[in-house]
Design a protein around this nucleic acid. Structure first.
Length: 306
DNA sequence: AAACCATGCAACCGCCAGTAG
DNA sequence: CCTACTGGCGGTTGCATGGTT
């Protein structure tokens, strides 16, 4: 009860990180890796708690971060994953290389929720708002499970995926954003024009495809069943392709590799394939003034986002 | 130019699960 | 088995910034 914050100890700094602190942490982790987070502040000479260091590294200093604005494809993917996973930001982030759960969570809360509402979609259930309101109004006790954390409904854990995916840092992971991987219909339910319906799969719909809407509605029903039925989902998981978006278990597995190109001879923990992905990795804040937004811009520019 | 407001983002808080002793 | 510690996660807060009046 009432356990105190890990920063309760006196003299521990809180709040925004200074460039000097960033540099200390970055240098330390670059040189030694992060073994035990709780011991890092001491070793790195930081007046921070280990948690704070971990968060700073994960959300900001980690060299494989993409930064920059989210692309439309990324937003679409987040929405679709949210429909499946709910507020499991870390799992959603695992499907978006270079993005953090915090970043995605912020985007969702500040932007995507509004966009969905504007399109008449309930951001919680991913159903049309009218349907949700009606559902609330009626005496139906049946919870809406479409996209509403369906996995949470399970009393037993969902079946393990057929293979552990280490897609997180796989540069080949992000598959082309096509409309072929799941009938999620953002935009069509509101009757809005197709040209501004960029959600999910709708954007590829042509007039000819409109003729297939009835079929698609059927598929939507199937999708609902799919989400509500752990057995169906399990079957899908077992039949999935390696690049399926619905690899539910998607923890990234760091791999131990020798960073022979590093100025330090120390071996360190780096995520798999990080070396190829990260042109800025060996440029650790040579100028402490380059931080914050500047670093974001630099990183974003390096990834072609500006 | 100043005040106010809205928004985005970084960081903290609290809880939980896993694990070592 | 119990306890304390640690890492991880999601929710929330507070500040900085940009836009509007």
């Amino acid at each position: 009860m009432g356990r105190q914050s890990c920063c309760y100890k006196q003299k521990l700094r809180k709040g925004l990180w200074s460039p000097e602190e960033d540099e200390k942490l970055l240098r330390h982790i670059t040189k030694y890796g992060h073994g035990c987070w709780s011991s890092i502040p001491k070793q790195a000479g930081l007046q921070r708690c280990g948690k704070s260091c971990r968060l700073r590294w994960i959300n900001y200093l980690r060299p494989d971060l993409k930064r920059g604005t989210f692309s439309q494809e990324e937003e679409n993917l987040i929405i679709e994953l949210h429909a499946v996973l709910g507020n499991r930001w870390s799992q959603i982030a695992a499907r978006l290389p270079g993005r953090t759960d915090n970043e995605i969570k912020n985007l969702w809360n500040s932007c995507l929720k509004k966009k969905l509402k504007q399109k008449g979609i309930d951001p919680v259930t991913h159903k049309p708002l009218s349907e949700v309101e009606n559902g609330e109004g009626s005496g139906s006790n049946k919870p809406s499970l479409v996209g509403h954390h369906p996995i949470h409904q399970y009393t037993s854990p969902p079946p393990p995926p057929p293979q552990l995916s280490s897609n997180w840092f796989n540069p080949e992971f992000p598959p082309p954003m096509t409309a072929s991987y799941g009938p999620l219909y953002y935009g069509t339910t509101t009757g809005g024009s197709a040209n501004n319906s960029t959600w999910g799969l709708v954007q590829t719909q042509t007039e000819e495809e409109e003729e297939e809407e009835e079929e698609e509605e059927e598929e939507e029903t199937k999708w609902t069943e799919f989400l509500n039925n752990p057995l169906l989902m399990a079957a899908a998981l077992q039949n999935q392709t390696p690049q399926s978006y619905y690899n539910i278990e998607i923890k990234s597995e760091p791999c131990y590799l020798t960073n022979s190109s590093s100025s330090s001879s120390n071996d360190m923990w780096w995520p798999q394939t990080q070396q190829q992905q990260l042109p800025l990795q060996h440029e650790p804040l040579q100028n402490p003034d380059i931080c914050g937004k500047d670093m974001q811009r630099l990183t974003a520019a390096a990834f072609g986002h500006i």
